[in-house]
Amino acid sequence: MSAKKSPEELKGIFEKYAAKEGDPNQLSKEELKLLLQTEFPSLLKGPSTLDELFEELDKNGDGEVSFEEFQVLVKKISQ
């Protein structure tokens, strides 16, 4: 996936994966893993990378990643 996506496209991608289980407005760690493996495969170099990335993105510590938290990752990789 190209990092150059419109905000609407990014929101659609986020919602597609977030709706798989639990809260449709939040990504669980498994949903984030699936999204990254599919859309940004070069970001995941191993299991520790996912854990570190999830911890970094989950700013409020609720165990899930909101769209706002996800946007931090998108901004970081599009620079």
Rank of each mutant, 00 (worst) to 15 (best):
N25G: 10
K33N: 10
L27S: 00
D62W: 03
L35F: 03
S42Y: 08
L36K: 00
A3S: 04
K11R: 02
D58G: 12
M1G: 01
G46W: 05
I13H: 01
V72Y: 07
L57Q: 12
F14D: 00
K16M: 03
K76G: 12
K59S: 12
M1R: 00
E52L: 11
E31T: 03
P7M: 14
V74Y: 14
F40S: 03
I77Q: 05
L27I: 15
E68W: 06
E56N: 13
L10D: 01
F40N: 05
K33S: 08
A18G: 06
K20A: 04
L50G: 06
K16A: 07
G12Q: 07
L57N: 08
E21F: 15
A3T: 07
Q71V: 07
I13P: 01
D58F: 14
F67K: 03
S48E: 14
Y17W: 10
D58W: 09
D23T: 12
S48D: 04
S6Q: 06
Q79K: 14
V74L: 10
L50W: 09
K5Y: 13
I13Q: 02
F70N: 00
D23K: 03
F14K: 00
V65Q: 03
P47Y: 14
K4S: 11
E52T: 14
L73M: 07
L34M: 13
G61V: 10
V72P: 10
S48N: 09
S2R: 04
D51I: 05
S48W: 08
S78P: 15
A19T: 15
N60C: 05
F14P: 00
M1Y: 01
Q26E: 12
S6N: 03
E8C: 01
L10V: 05
L32G: 03
E69W: 02
L43K: 11
A18F: 01
L10F: 08
E52F: 06
E39P: 00
F70C: 03
Q26S: 14
N60L: 09
L43Y: 12
L27Y: 00
K33D: 13
S66M: 12
E69T: 10
G61W: 09
F67M: 03
M1Q: 00
K4W: 01
E56P: 15
K16R: 05
F70I: 01
G46E: 09
D23L: 09
E39Q: 02
P24K: 14
P24F: 02
T49H: 14
T49G: 08
P47M: 11
V72L: 11
P7A: 10
Q37G: 11
K5R: 03
S78D: 15
E9V: 07
M1A: 00
Y17F: 11
K33L: 13
I13V: 04
D58V: 07
V72I: 10
P47C: 14
Q37P: 02
Q71H: 09
P24R: 11
L36C: 05
L10S: 02
Y17V: 01
M1E: 00
E15Y: 15
K29F: 12
K4F: 11
E9D: 14
V72M: 09
K20C: 01
N25T: 11
D23S: 08
Q71K: 06
I77N: 09
E39C: 01
S6D: 06
K20Y: 04
I77K: 03
A19C: 11
P7D: 04
F40W: 12
P7I: 10
P41V: 04
L44Q: 08
A19W: 04
F14E: 00
L27H: 00
A3E: 05
K33A: 14
V72S: 08
N25V: 06
L27V: 10
F67N: 04
D51K: 08
K11Q: 08
F70W: 04
Q79L: 10
K29T: 12
L27T: 01
K76W: 01
T49R: 07
L10R: 01
P47Q: 14
E68Q: 05
A3M: 12
N60I: 11
E8R: 08
E68C: 06
F70Y: 08
E64W: 15
L36T: 02
L57P: 10
P41L: 06
E9R: 02
P24N: 09
K29A: 13
E15S: 11
E56W: 06
E55V: 10
S42I: 09
N60P: 11
F14C: 00
F54E: 09
F54S: 13
K29G: 06
K20F: 03
G12H: 14
G61Y: 06
L36S: 01
A19Y: 04
F40Q: 02
E68Y: 02
K29N: 15
K59N: 12
G22M: 02
L27E: 00
F14A: 00
G12M: 11
E9T: 06
L43D: 04
D58L: 14
D51C: 12
K4Q: 07
Q79V: 05
K5F: 10
V65M: 13
E9Q: 14
S78C: 00
G63V: 05
K33C: 06
L44T: 13
E30Y: 08
L32V: 06
T38V: 12
E21M: 10
G22S: 04
G63M: 10
L50N: 05
F67Y: 09
P41T: 11
K59Q: 10
E15G: 07
K16Y: 05
I13C: 05
D62N: 07
G12F: 10
E68D: 11
A19G: 14
M1T: 01
I13D: 01
I13T: 03
P7Y: 14
I77M: 03
E68G: 07
G22H: 05
K16P: 01
E69Y: 08
T49S: 12
A19M: 10
L50I: 12
E21L: 03
G63H: 15
E8P: 03
F54I: 14
P7G: 04
K4N: 15
L27A: 04
F54C: 11
L43N: 05
F70H: 00
S2T: 15
L43H: 09
L43C: 10
E55T: 12
L73K: 01
Y17P: 00
G61K: 07
E30S: 14
D58Q: 15
G46Y: 12
L43F: 10
K29I: 14
T49Y: 11
E68F: 07
D51W: 03
Q71L: 13
K20G: 10
P47E: 15
A19P: 04
E69H: 11
L53P: 13
Q79Y: 03
K33M: 14
S48A: 11
N25W: 01
K4H: 11
Q26I: 11
S2H: 05
L44E: 14
E69P: 02
G12T: 15
A18C: 02
E8D: 04
S28N: 07
L35M: 13
P41Y: 08
N25Q: 06
Q26N: 08
D58E: 04
V72H: 09
L10G: 00
E69Q: 12
S28W: 01
D58Y: 11
G12Y: 08
